[in-house]
Design a protein around this nucleic acid. Structure first.
Lengths: 216, 216
DNA sequence: GTCTATATGCTGATAGAC
DNA sequence: GTCTATCAGCATATAGAC
């Protein structure tokens, strides 16, 4: 089921045959720095060293461009987290791997994932046309599927006895919040390495898995 | 020090002698539902059952209005969290009380606190005039002071041995993220009571303090 | 496939009546 | 203190040249 959705994404993202990753990346960076509404198409074009004619050739509206950035961001999260669901360890151990990969993806694709966070926020907003509203609903379904990945493993963790909590839904929302908040405060340092990010991700996951209170 | 900042806020918020809580609340709700840029002054006026003449009589720009909503939101967080710093219990116990009050304030003043989250996000954005940039910087200092409240108690918890983690800064950012994420997903149900919110807050705090992994 | 030029509409902000 | 009327600027989107 998840796989089917993932394939749908790729279809949508690349419906014209070319990926336009250059445009998507420039747009993601603008949206990250200024937000959706404050970003003009001219801003994105300027970042590309082009004019808006190029952008409107591929995307029929700014909203559609935003949605495609969102789709790409979700795709990267799925690609990071899904492989960590299976494998060795009890449920909580696997949850920890998923969270770590989620955190690393947030850092490595910060611009795209910041847009995803904005998109979730935008959910309640009045998306203009019915077609756009439909697309936004579809993106939120994908978002829910992502949350479901964590719920599935959390249920497995509850069954194998490794999970302390009983309220899976609230627990998952809480821990995803801790990770997603990276989009607000994390900014890479100039000299930052992959190892630095691994250490940061490990610390965050350790805090989530073990809690604040020291165990005797 | 914190107290001084709090008083500064009250001065700024009520510099004209009247509190204008009606305008602030209407603005907060619009900003929550549509975001800062997508909200027009006419939207806020419409929600008030008035026209924008009324708003511009008190606020010289939309940005100033946003900042005052942000200030009010921060003030409510301080008022909720500061009393919980002192009192009985070890450091982690007091941290738990602070987090619970924080979560309750998020739910009870959802519109204002959603604006605070937006403001933090907006920090990197290009605020237009130098005066506005100065105000935004000032708001971020208040935000940092808020985070510092948690760091102070976290240090105390490290010293009394109740805190497991050693990296205070990352730990605090992680747990505040878990709480702040409420602004994204929490929406009150029609029949919701104070008790419901207490239960939700308690569950979230329990997850943060004890962690996911069951203790033997 | 990308550019220039332009139409069109919206919104922040102001001026002045009441 | 609030309203009506209005201006000025900006940003989305389109049309058509190259």
């Amino acid at each position: 089921m998840i796989k089917a959705i993932d394939e749908t994404r790729i279809e949508n993202t690349r419906s014209n045959g070319s990926s336009n990753l250059e445009i998507l990346t420039a747009a993601a960076e603008c949206f990250m720095e200024q937000g959706f509404h404050a970003t003009s198409i001219d801003d994105v074009a300027r970042r590309l060293g082009a004019t808006k004619g190029r952008i409107y050739h591929y995307y029929s509206s700014k909203t559609d461009l935003f949605f495609d950035v969102h789709r790409e961001g979700m795709a990267r999260l799925f690609n990071a987290v899904k492989p960590a669901m299976k494998g060795e360890g009890d449920g909580v151990t696997r949850l920890g791997r998923m969270l770590k990969n989620h955190a690393l993806a947030m850092m490595e694709s910060l611009a795209f994932e910041t847009v995803v966070v904005q998109g979730v926020h935008m959910h309640r907003l009045g998306a203009t046309t019915p077609a756009q509203r439909r697309t936004l609903d579809e993106l939120m379904i994908i978002r829910d599927e992502f949350e479901t990945l964590f719920k599935i493993v959390a249920y497995e963790a509850a069954e194998d006895g490794s999970l302390a909590s009983r309220d899976i839904s609230i627990t998952v929302k809480t821990i995803l919040g801790a990770i997603n908040w990276l989009a607000i405060w994390y900014r890479p340092r100039p000299d930052e390495t992959e190892v630095d990010r691994e250490i940061l991700a490990a610390k965050i996951v350790e805090t989530i898995l073990s809690g604040l209170r020291r165990r005797e």
